[in-house]
Amino acid sequence: MVDVSQHELVPDHSVLDEDTLEEVLEEYDIDRTDLPKIKRNDSALPDEAEIGDVIKIVRNSRTTDQAVVYRLVVE
């Protein structure tokens, strides 16, 4: 099986712990369901991720050095 995370199109995915998540949600003043979503069967999802988890994605941004975004695991 091919290691998807090695592909240059795939940014770094990691599961966010609850404490950091609280800070993030507070900073943006949103609920976790307001976050963009990622499907549970997504190829790039870390193995340990479960529905309801929030994934931290560190993109190599075109406009700044690195951009951090979050996606909620659904379905």
Binding site: H7, L9, P11, S43, A44, R59
Partner: peptide
């Protein structure tokens, strides 16, 4: 398998996930 790409965004989505698909669309 780290550089090969295609021009079908759905194939990229299926194989590499939604973030790669976003990257491919851009």
């Amino acid at each position: 398998a780290s550089r090969t790409t295609c021009n079908n965004i759905h194939e990229i989505h299926r194989n590499l996930g939604i973030e790669a698909a976003r990257e491919a669309i851009i």
